[in-house]
Design a protein around this nucleic acid. Sequence first.
DNA 1: ACCGTACCGTACCGTACGTTACGGCCAGCG
DNA 2: CGCTGGCCGTAACGTACGGTACGGTACGGT
Lengths: 217, 217
Amino acid sequence: MQTHVDVSDNALTERQKDVLDAALALLVEAGDTLTMTSVARRASCSKESLYKWFGDRDGLLTATVQWQASKVRGVPVDPEAFNLASLTSGLERFAADWLRVLSGNISVALNRVAVGHAGSDKHDLGAIVLENGPFAMARRLKPLLQLGRDTGLIHFHETDEAFRTFFGLVVRDVQIRLLLGDRLGLTEAAIDRDARRATQQFLALYGPHTKPAGDGH
Amino acid sequence: MQTHVDVSDNALTERQKDVLDAALALLVEAGDTLTMTSVARRASCSKESLYKWFGDRDGLLTATVQWQASKVRGVPVDPEAFNLASLTSGLERFAADWLRVLSGNISVALNRVAVGHAGSDKHDLGAIVLENGPFAMARRLKPLLQLGRDTGLIHFHETDEAFRTFFGLVVRDVQIRLLLGDRLGLTEAAIDRDARRATQQFLALYGPHTKPAGDGH
DNA sequence: ACCGTACCGTACCGTACGTTACGGCCAGCG
DNA sequence: CGCTGGCCGTAACGTACGGTACGGTACGGT
């Protein structure tokens, strides 16, 4: 007996993708209180199909999380002429992208259910979100950091330590406050400003010996 | 008709406190899946009493969160002879305390249920945890930061911005990873090291014009 | 001795929801 | 045309759990 549907392969019917998108929408609206019936109704499919495709409620949630994760992939940075300007803009773009994702409805909803199910779970949603959230971010950023170090633009011993500092400077208390229900409406302008500030602070700590940067004015 | 039990006053019987401690323990063990029956059994009290005292399940959870919050109060800093050393040690102590609380079982469990209930909630647990978590931390730290600025030891425009940067440098990805189920066993030594590193980085950004600090190796 | 109050233990009720089963519709195909 | 298989819609089942009711006990006040 196989585990019904494997999302890592693209073994998903268009129909099934539609169903998962419906589940995603409901997850955003209703959080973890979504019912199998509501998903079936929203997607205009039968509960029988839901159980045939995804096994059980947990399987549906897992498939939904993985489906969303598979949509966010990609966007690596490829460096040719690499200098301080491209490092800076790379960090800024990365920070802005990350803040945009974090503050989006979908990310907040998925992180909420994953946090709620963390640990005591068959398919451990927490691990999946962890893998496709912070860890994926680390994997995407580290090459840029190491390139910066190799070219002598920034200095650190542990890549992981540098990454985590950058993470802290970018995210700060934004994510936990959003998860706890604080509105904190991040405008596009505020995101760009935060991304620049975080990058300047990071460069002040690890970068060329400029004088330390303040809070951005 | 009043709302059953007011935790802000100490209008709690010893018996009721015992019940809330039992609920807290169950929350740590079982998360949001704790049932009224399980609380009654663990606390050796009747469900009738639970409903008389706390109204409903939500009221019990709310009272439990507030009860825990009321235990964490206090520990303000009072400055007499204030210099760079006392600012540094104040920041370090603060950071270490915060990391210790954050990584404790109780904090993780409470943040999990609060995140799960955020928004769609009668007694909005998310707001309560927000108030007693990040916001309380900000209220406790800001006087120290402002004292530092008044005495010319550090420089910033917005106290809130300075606080949030410190928050980011201290917490980094620790909290979200813990909430998502990452073990990440923080030893006492690691916490002290992180507290010192975060403080040094903060001072490098906002403080006296020393050269920027690295990641502490 | 009697009453009211507070509480425990437990049985009970109602309901929501996960899960399963069934009947009907439609498409592809021999 | 009739068979088969996949899917929809819906009804039904089982259960877990929130919430309530009730009998029994201890205790303080009068």
